[in-house]
Amino acid sequence: NEEPLPEGWEIRYTREGVRYFVDHNTRTTTFKDPRNGKS
């Protein structure tokens, strides 16, 4: 039961299956979860 991502964020996966987060607001990507700060 995960809380929803902030507005404008999306979860994607690399070809290796590593989860990362896309911030469409700033057009950046990060491996850090914007909901809780954990990677």
Rank of each mutant, 00 (worst) to 15 (best):
E2W: 10
D23Q: 04
T29M: 14
E7K: 12
P6D: 05
V22A: 05
S39I: 13
E16S: 14
E3G: 14
R15L: 12
D33R: 01
E3P: 10
V18F: 10
P4T: 08
D33V: 00
G37P: 14
G17W: 04
F21V: 00
P34Y: 00
I11S: 06
R27S: 14
F31S: 13
T29V: 15
S39Y: 12
D33H: 02
T30Q: 10
R12G: 07
V22I: 13
N36W: 12
S39Q: 13
Y13T: 07
R19P: 11
H24N: 10
T30P: 01
R27D: 15
T30N: 05
N1R: 10
R12T: 04
T28G: 05
G37Y: 09
R12C: 14
K38Y: 12
T14L: 05
T30V: 04
T30G: 06
E16H: 14
N1G: 13
N36G: 12
Y20T: 02
L5D: 02
I11G: 03
E10F: 06
P34I: 01
G17F: 05
V18G: 07
E10I: 05
R15C: 15
R15S: 14
R19Q: 10
N1V: 13
E10S: 07
S39P: 12
T26R: 06
V18R: 13
G17N: 07
E2D: 11
P4K: 09
G37H: 11
P6Y: 03
P4N: 09
D23F: 03
L5V: 06
W9H: 01
Y20G: 01
E7P: 15
E16V: 08
N36S: 13
E16W: 12
E16L: 12
G17Y: 04
Y13G: 01
V18D: 07
I11H: 03
N1P: 13
E3H: 10
P34N: 00
R35H: 02
P6R: 05
I11P: 03
E3L: 12
E16A: 14
Y20R: 01
G37Q: 13
R35I: 05
R12K: 13
R19M: 13
E7M: 11
G8M: 04
K32D: 15
T28R: 09
F21M: 00
E10P: 00
K32N: 15
E7L: 12
D23S: 05
L5E: 02
Y13C: 08
R19W: 04
R35A: 03
F31W: 09
Y13I: 08
T28N: 09
N25C: 09
W9F: 05
P6A: 05
V22F: 15
T14G: 05
T26G: 06
F31G: 08
E2I: 09
R19T: 07
L5S: 02
V22H: 06
R27Q: 15
K38Q: 14
N25V: 10
R27A: 14
V18I: 14
R12N: 06
G8T: 02
E3N: 11
G8A: 03
Y20D: 01
E7T: 10
N36D: 15
Y13F: 11
F21P: 01
T28L: 08
R15Q: 12
R27I: 06
N36L: 15
P4W: 07
P34W: 00
P34H: 00
L5I: 05
R27V: 07
F21K: 00
W9S: 00
D23V: 01
T26V: 02
Y13H: 08
G37F: 10
R15H: 12
T29H: 14
F21W: 07
T30A: 05
I11A: 07
F21L: 01
K38A: 14
T26F: 03
E16Q: 13
T28E: 10
N36A: 11
H24V: 08
N1F: 14
G8N: 07
T26H: 06
R15T: 13
P4Q: 09
P6M: 04
P34S: 01
L5F: 06
D23L: 02
E7I: 09
T26N: 09
T29K: 15
W9R: 00
S39L: 12
N36H: 11
N25I: 11
T14D: 07
T29Y: 15
G8L: 04
L5N: 02
K32W: 15
T30S: 11
I11M: 14
Y20Q: 04
Y13Q: 06
E16K: 13
R15I: 11
R12L: 08
N1T: 12
P34D: 01
Y20I: 07
H24K: 09
D33K: 01
N1H: 13
R27P: 05
D23N: 09
V22W: 11
T29W: 15
Y13R: 06
G17Q: 05
P34T: 00
Y13L: 07
H24R: 08
E2P: 10
T26P: 01
S39R: 11
T14I: 03
T14Q: 02
V18T: 09
T14F: 02
P6K: 06
V22L: 10
T29I: 15
N36C: 15
V22Q: 05
K32G: 07
N1Q: 14
K32I: 15
R12W: 06
K32Y: 15
D33G: 01
K38M: 14
E7Y: 09
T30K: 04
F31P: 08
L5Y: 03
G17H: 07
H24G: 07
T14S: 08
E3D: 11
I11D: 03
D33N: 01
P34M: 00
I11R: 06
N1S: 12
T30D: 05
P6N: 03
E7H: 12
P4Y: 07
N25S: 07
K32V: 15
Y20A: 01
P34F: 01
E10M: 05
G17T: 02
V22Y: 15
T14A: 03
L5R: 02
R35Y: 03
S39N: 12
R15M: 12
G17D: 05
R27L: 09
P6S: 04
Y20V: 07
Y13M: 07
R27Y: 07
P6T: 03
D33W: 01
F31A: 10
N25P: 03
D33Q: 01
N25T: 09
G8I: 02
E3K: 11
E16I: 09
F21H: 00
R15V: 12
P6I: 03
W9A: 00
T29N: 10
W9Q: 01
N25G: 07
L5P: 15
K38R: 11
E3F: 09
R35T: 06
T29S: 11
T26I: 02
T14K: 02
T26E: 06
F21E: 00
E2L: 10
R12E: 06
V22G: 00
G17M: 06
P34K: 01
R19A: 09
E10A: 06
H24A: 07
E10D: 06
F31R: 13
E2A: 10
V22K: 06
F21G: 00
K38E: 15
T14C: 07
T14Y: 02
I11K: 06
N36P: 14
F31N: 11
L5K: 02
D33A: 00
T29D: 07
V22M: 09
P4L: 09
G8V: 01
D33S: 01
R35D: 03
S39E: 14
K38L: 13
T28P: 00
K32E: 15
G17A: 04
Y20L: 06
Y20S: 02
R15Y: 10
E2V: 10
D23G: 01
H24T: 10
G37A: 12
T29E: 15
Y20N: 01
R12F: 09
T26K: 06
P4I: 08
E2T: 10
E16G: 13
R19H: 06
R12V: 07
D23R: 02
Y13W: 11
K32L: 15
R35W: 05
P34V: 01
E10R: 03
K38T: 14
H24F: 09
S39F: 13
E2H: 10
R15G: 10
E10Q: 06
H24W: 11
Y13A: 04
N36T: 15
D23P: 01
S39A: 13
F31K: 11
T14E: 02
V18L: 12
E7Q: 12
G8C: 07
G17I: 01
V18S: 07
G8H: 06
Y20H: 03
W9I: 03
N25F: 07
K32M: 11
